[in-house]
Design a protein around this nucleic acid. Structure first.
Lengths: 344, 344
DNA sequence: ATGAAAGCGCTAACAC
DNA sequence: GTGTTAGCGCTTTCAT
């Protein structure tokens, strides 16, 4: 080994056993809560004491090699810098760490290929399971992993490539609430800037928009919808310009908050006031969306809870074997702020 | 093992060796770039082919157990939901993953005790080294780890508890640039809301404030400085109220962007306009600070670069042994936006 | 150039 | 109740 310079060599189970005057096997039993009953109380005490004295830490690799469990879980996110994902990660991590699992985060940088690589790398590390927040509707990497029996739970985005437990939020109800709000304010020409259709959130919110618009009696002209190429401020701005060039919406429903920010920029750029000339609704309620000018009306998604639920599902899978089809949909909430008002 | 239901058993090196018609030891040599020269070219080809056919992935635990290296690095952050930290993590992760290292992130939730637990948990996982972004000036856990020879690099925050390589940004120059800007605009009564003094960023920026204020000839009354208990919007608002109760600054330098957001809230709450009545400067330039109203003048800190440099330092340590005293300070940049103007 | 064998630290099946 | 033993998958020294 590359000797840890000045480093203390770590105590091994054998060291503990010797100090306690027992065999390594006995020490193992004494330290493990599950097998502790098989050992005399005096021995348990002696071993525990020796362990404490030597500051013994079980070597998780050795244990993992033997038990074929690592107590590590991989979490794959498309972009950790997107404020949407840290809460998901933290929600998951809290649940997992309480159950003794360590979380490894992989960031795919919104790149499909890197998602595959991340899954492969994590599997090579023998993670016990995977939480995937980056799935696309057509996701080869997820399909493969699922086929190979990897315990895997999707969060935030669904896929059509595999039948796998998934925790999302209620996109239909979110869109419905947003539209109801706008229609109640008197809007009929409502523009929609959905996220990319290759992501479930993009497609499902777009579908929900069409469905509820016709139900609520709003205008459903094709030129009122412009799909964004990505969930970003820039793509939102590009789409907003296209929309405003080809139609005259009094309100715009954005695919997410970043897109909404892009919309606000373009409105300013064109001398249109929000909400007086055009109302804007976002989606997700990221941090600081209440500090924009005007504060953004948006749909609040319970990201931390989604992460936590997904982690629960995964833990159950790990403990009890694969669950049946399992689609958890968490409720969302419309947060009305200053970016929406009745049309002039 | 808890059989992976329907799962494919993973190919082992022995499987590969058998398929290639060689011994496991030979297969190992053939697959390892460093020892590949010891093996005939034909054998290398055969083994590589077998490995590919079986989709062989070396078991990192088995390897680690033997080599006493895990190729895992722990990264400890105080709060992943704070937009400041994801870029640091990503910067580090990119460098580390290119070198074959996997990153494990631990979130201490701004809790000293949890920092200690995280370090312990990561060490129990046999990480090869640690990147710590959560250090406090007086940090027992870091001190202990360093004393025990754990390769450890600090990023973003320094400590006085140990002599350890550290990558930060230039707080003094950041404060100086901000103050110069304000003084040039004509401000003399400049309030300061530094972060908590138990963090190096809090203390050092406070010191720099005093130093440069006296140098620039501004007012340096004690009632113009109010320390924030945490780096948060709420703590910033609390401190801002205190400040405005006891003094009449025409400009406020906030300890970071969150604090600045709290200041903006309080100004609004009191009917004071920014920048007409009070100018505000933040610190860090987090995402969306350019979308506030008014857009926030702030000091941009190269977080991703800091993460990357810290990772480099750690890699060097891992490869070549402990470096000497090593304090890297990255330059910062003042970003002037709409929240600063000349006093009325 | 390759096979044989030992052993990393741990757990578990088997003795006694 | 505790010692013994084998072996998880890999690397590496020692033979040959």
């Amino acid at each position: 080994m590359a000797a840890r310079p000045g480093g203390t060599r770590h105590a091994t189970l054998k060291d503990v056993a010797e100090r306690a005057g027992v065999h390594a096997g006995t020490a193992s039993r004494a330290l493990n809560p599950a097998t502790q009953g098989l050992v005399s109380e005096a021995t348990v005490r002696a071993v525990r004491e020796a362990a404490k004295a030597l500051d013994y830490r079980p070597n998780s690799m050795a244990r993992g090699l033997k038990t074929n469990k690592t107590f590590m879980v991989g979490v794959i996110v498309p972009d950790l810098s997107n404020p949407l994902f840290p809460p998901i990660v933290r929600g998951a991590e809290e649940v997992l760490s309480r159950a003794g699992y360590t979380t490894i985060i992989a960031d795919t940088d919104n790149d499909r290929e890197r998602e595959g690589e991340s899954i492969a790398a994590l599997r090579a590390r023998q993670v016990d399971g995977l939480l995937v927040a980056s799935a696309s509707r057509d996701d080869e990497a997820v399909r493969t992993a699922v086929e190979q029996g990897v315990p895997l739970v999707l969060v935030n985005r669904r896929t059509e490539s595999a039948n796998v437990p998934t925790v999302t939020s209620d996109d239909r109800s979110g869109i419905e609430k947003a539209l109801e709000h706008l229609v109640r304010l008197g809007h009929t020409a409502i523009g929609h800037l959905p996220g990319p259709a290759h992501l479930s959130t993009g497609l499902e919110r777009a579908r929900a928009f069409r469905h509820h618009m016709s139900e609520l009696g709003g205008t459903l002209a094709p030129e009122l919808t412009v799909e964004c190429s990505t969930y970003s401020v820039d793509a939102g701005a590009v789409a907003a310009r296209t929309l405003l060039d080809q139609a005259e919406p009094t309100a715009i429903l954005a695919g997410n908050d970043q897109i909404a920010v892009g919309v606000l920029d373009v409105l300013r750029e064109r001398g249109l006031r929000c909400p007086e000339d055009v109302s804007v609704v976002g989606y997700n309620d990221m941090t600081f969306m209440d500090k924009l000018s005007p504060p953004l009306t948006t749909v609040r998604v319970p990201h931390a809870a989604m992460g936590a639920e997904a982690a629960q599902l995964l833990l159950r899978w790990l403990a009890e074997g694969p669950p049946g089809p399992n689609m958890l949909t968490l409720p969302v909430e419309l947060v009305v702020r200053g970016s929406t008002a009745s049309p002039a």
